[in-house]
């Protein structure tokens, strides 16, 4: 939260520097299933944020001493690429990224049906390729799609957003300049089925009344984020459908032949 050198962040018409209204989320686009090796993956662009997220597992947690006897562990790694920030970021984990990894892991432990895989681990890796305010929520939003792409059972999708205070006004989803000179930040993630809060952080200064309003605004804004997540998953699984319905090939019937089988396959 730097000191504003005199930039007007909200104009007299209530419009923000990028033309948004105070309760408007930046454009979000997500693609699911973009990586070849990961069990599930998603690429997200949210404003100028660019994030890649991938999921491996569930798989056995080694070494064994980290295992939980009755459930699997959700392990997160949030990392910023060295070139993602305006000054080059030194590679490797720092205190900030470790904290973010932890709160995101806690959020997903809440929704993933971890009891299905005792002694297991689910690994979530989020790489920030370009950072522009709100990267932790962007990372979490992409990770939730990657989890769904991996087919991991969950009690509900997790979507998130943040609300900050800019020029004394509450605004959802701060952009870069707003984040630099804003007066507070309240990132929240919600289980979209139950409405429960699964991630909550707060930084800066808000009055009690402002806080309550900010929380309501954030939870409401999560709907817009959730819609982008749904769109991505629907496109992932139905993209080919429209194409197929247009032109289904008419096959020539081949000859039936008695299969020479060594092992008869069982039908599931």
């Amino acid at each position: 939260m730097g000191v504003n050198p005199g930039i007007e962040l909200i104009d007299k018409n209530g419009k923000r520097t990028d033309g948004r209204k105070v309760d408007e989320v930046r454009p979000i686009h997500i693609e699911a299933g973009v990586l070849h090796r990961a069990d599930g993956s998603a690429y997200l662009e949210w404003g100028n944020n660019k994030v890649m997220a991938a999921v491996y597992g569930p798989r056995e947690f080694n070494p064994r001493r980290f295992q939980k006897a009755d459930k699997c562990v959700v392990r997160c790694k949030y990392n910023m690429a060295a070139f993602s920030t305006s000054d080059r970021k030194r590679p490797g984990p720092d205190r900030r990224s470790q904290e973010i990894s932890k709160v995101i892991a806690d959020a997903f432990e809440n929704v993933v049906l971890t009891e299905k895989w005792p002694r297991g681990v689910i690994d979530i890796n989020m790489e920030i390729l370009q950072a522009d305010a709100g990267t932790r929520i962007a990372a979490l939003t992409a990770a939730a799609v990657a989890l769904a792409d991996a087919g991991i059972p969950m009690k509900g999708m997790v979507a998130g957003c943040a609300t900050g205070k800019v020029d004394g006004k509450l605004c959802v989803d701060l952009n870069g300049p707003e984040d630099n000179y804003g007066e507070s930040d309240l990132p929240v993630a919600v289980n979209m089925t139950t409405g429960e809060i699964v991630l909550l952080q707060m930084d800066g200064h808000l009055t009690g009344r402002e806080f309550e309003k900010a929380l309501d605004m954030t939870v409401k804004a999560c709907d817009q984020v959730y819609q982008a997540q749904r769109d991505a998953l629907e496109r992932r699984f139905t993209a080919k459908l429209d194409e197929l319905e247009k032109d289904t090939p008419a096959p020539r019937r081949g000859k039936q032949q008695e299969a020479k089988e060594v092992v008869e396959a069982e039908v599931a």
């Binding site: 990586l35 090796r37 990961a38 890649m52 997220a53 491996y56 790694k77 060295a82 590679p91 490797g92």
Partner: peptide, 18 residues
């Protein structure tokens, strides 16, 4: 020049120093 082998790139890559 530096390289980071993100753990997302392979099920066998692990977190830690390069």
């Amino acid at each position: 020049t530096s390289a980071e082998m993100c753990i997302m790139a392979s099920p066998h890559f692990e977190a830690g120093p390069p």
